[in-house]
Write a protein that binds this DNA or RNA. Structure first.
Lengths: 213, 213
DNA sequence: GCATCGTGTGAACACTTGTTCACTCAATGG
DNA sequence: CCATTGAGTGAACAAGTGTTCACACGATGC
């Protein structure tokens, strides 16, 4: 019962990787055709239906699997992370290593975050939110922040994550091997994160922000 | 020489609005077909070529025109903006009004920022950068910030703009008339902007941020 | 008033698309 | 060992695609 399933997963993987590779070269996922994907995967179009009902399902599977893989990696990295003064810069640099090691996956997520179908966008938003909450939990253990309302800490986590995601988008526009420009982005990103942390330290809950909306 | 050009601009506009409307309903621009657009615009496919060489050119024109329009609006709003303590919240609320009044345009820009072709992405990035520099110029006139290096002020402007853009993306996922959720986003956004400003006030240039990348 | 210009037309083209179907034939399990 | 299962095949389909062409016919400029 092994060989059969194994081969099936193999072509399933081929389909997903073909789609991922095409997105990584600049195509947008919704513009990929089923036939293109099967062609690149070295399989006849009809075989596609043995694995996915349609392209939308492929997209969802792609989100799930790439997110699952990234979550594992990030979780592993976070536990081996020694807290300290230059924690930010260190986190940034390991994050950039991830990105370069998983460019196609990040490319796909970045493009489909707003570009994909409703289901895909929601799946990605859910993943980002989950990651934000994890970060908030970590963050809420630090001196000043453990006295802030949970809501405020989440607000700042969201801000941090958004900032990282923006830098990610900027990085993916660069060619893969451009260390100078990547270094500039890294510097800018860790400066920005530092501004946010400084702001968080100066933050007092519920202070003079008129909610005039 | 008036009537002819006028009618031409009219169908050109129809083509652009048709594309914009389709993107606003959730389609991604690269997946639109030339024939679909002409059909929605009430024109035969061959007429398309009287206005654009191909769909890519339509996309670029769409970026240019929507950005131009938005820039005018924003510039007008900025000059009528009285600086003051709740400037942030006021800016946020007028910004949200813009977004709701120009949903299709913002939808298009948000989706194509990472989802479009290289040319389109670069055009949008250029626009955002231009806007960031404008904001930095404004910002550099305030007490504390006029003593920071230009580079740092731009870094913070970028951070502010990225934060607004993230909130924008979140807003566009909501249905158009959902004042409660929009209010929540507005509150969160102005809190986040406040964190950044607080961080900027606490920022000292070149202070203990190790560039270990 | 008349020749010219140019937007929009409708038909035609060669292709690609998603989906279906009956089929092969190796792995599976009793 | 032999019947069954199911991943992959290749052909066929109706429908949609981008692009081209000669043509119509009203506005334009002399």
């Amino acid at each position: 019962m092994a060989i059969r399933d194994e081969r099936k997963q193999q072509t399933r993987q081929a389909l997903m990787e073909a789609a991922l590779a095409m997105v990584a070269t600049g195509r947008s996922f919704p513009s990929l055709s089923l036939r293109e994907v099967t062609r690149d995967a070295g399989v006849v179009p009809a075989s596609f239906y043995r694995h996915f009902r349609d392209m939308d399902q492929l997209g969802l599977a792609l989100v799930d699997e790439t997110c699952q893989r990234l979550r594992k990696l990030i979780r592993a990295a976070r536990t081996t992370q020694a807290p300290g003064d230059n924690m930010l810069a260190a986190s940034v640099s390991t994050f950039l290593l991830y990105v370069n090691a998983n460019r196609p996956a990040f490319h796909f997520l970045t493009r489909e975050r707003y570009g994909g179908t409703k289901d895909v966008r929601e799946a990605i938003a859910r993943e980002i939110r989950g990651f934000t909450l994890d970060l908030a939990a970590d963050f809420a253990r630090f001196p000043h922040f453990n006295q802030l309302p949970r809501h405020d800490v989440e607000m700042m986590s969201t801000l941090l994550v958004n900032t990282v995601v923006s830098a990610l988008g900027e990085m993916l526009e660069l060619p893969a091997d451009h260390p100078d420009a990547q270094g500039a982005i890294a510097k800018s990103l860790s400066d920005q994160l530092r501004v946010i942390v400084l702001g968080g330290l100066a933050w007092r809950p519920g202070a003079k922000v008129p909610t005039s909306v």
